[in-house]
Amino acid sequence: MRANAPYYFVPGLSQWPIMGALAMFFFVLGMSNWVNGVSWGPISFAVSMAILFFTLFGWFRTVISESEGGMYSDRVDVSFRWSMGWFIFSEVMFFAAFFGALFYARQIAMPWLGDLDNKSFLWPDFGAHWPNTGPAGTIESFEKMGPWPIPTINTALLLTSGLTLTWAHHAMLANQRGKLIMGLALTVLLGAIFMGFQAYEYHHAYTELNLKLTSGVFGSTFFMLTGFHGFHVTIGAIMLFFIMIRCMKGHFTPEHHFAFEAAAWYWHFVDVVWLGLYVVVYWL
């Protein structure tokens, strides 16, 4: 039990949950109308992002002040660990749905449609090959994104970032604040470089390969998987950046630093997802 911490901390009334729900309401409203061409859709989306960032900033500031004020006992620490574990599990299921969609389209639906009994229901000269461009004129021809050089470079970047983050964790346990901050800074930098390369890859796909979100099931699964992964890399890098700021302010001790561990768990999860993407999407 931590010194001066209550048996189990019970927070008071908070406005942050309802603010988060409000942000999600405007997000769903904005995105659903944006993709359907409604003019005010982007405005609703922007409002949702403003509310969300305000909520996250205020809510995390409250939690940090409670933690640094000695309000959290070891029992609260266990609750945080279970919460983060279940959150990452939900993220696993999220990506499993997209990987499952890709597997079904490629390994089950495409061979089934290629059977002689089913060809009569499709267009003439249908070929059960991957990626499929659909009937002539329906989907513009495109080139598949290969594993070299950018995806391979990005793989090396993320694997290296996992090493620098582990180095930072060992520095935390050894109470070596300088190495800790250096390791976090390198990890954040590698994540930023990864996102820069992915932005260039998307530009290359659209302008030179004609590979777009509308390029059939391959285009939709490619951009959904890589796009959501890139979003998670961005979120993870932001988390680690603020953890680095807290380390520079003297927060955390070798015994109590779950916020650092939670961000590290998330980052390693992002690394593992990318390895699956690299093999399934770019190589196979």
Rank of each mutant, 00 (worst) to 15 (best):
V92I: 15
V78H: 11
S73T: 10
G114Q: 03
D125M: 09
A96P: 06
D74G: 12
F87K: 00
L113F: 10
L102I: 06
Q107D: 15
A101F: 10
F126Q: 06
G114R: 03
F87H: 01
M84V: 12
Y72L: 12
D125I: 02
L102W: 09
S79P: 01
I108W: 07
F99V: 06
F126C: 04
M110I: 07
L113Y: 07
W123G: 04
F94P: 05
P124Y: 00
V76N: 15
K119L: 15
F95D: 00
F121E: 07
F89I: 08
D117G: 11
L102Q: 05
L102E: 05
N132T: 01
F89W: 06
P111K: 02
F95G: 00
D74W: 05
V76H: 12
W112G: 10
F126I: 05
Y72F: 15
W86F: 13
W123L: 02
R81S: 13
L113I: 05
R81D: 13
G127S: 15
R106I: 01
Y104V: 12
N132Q: 04
A128N: 03
R75H: 09
I88T: 06
I108C: 01
N132C: 03
A128D: 05
Y72P: 01
M110V: 05
F94I: 05
N118P: 01
P111D: 06
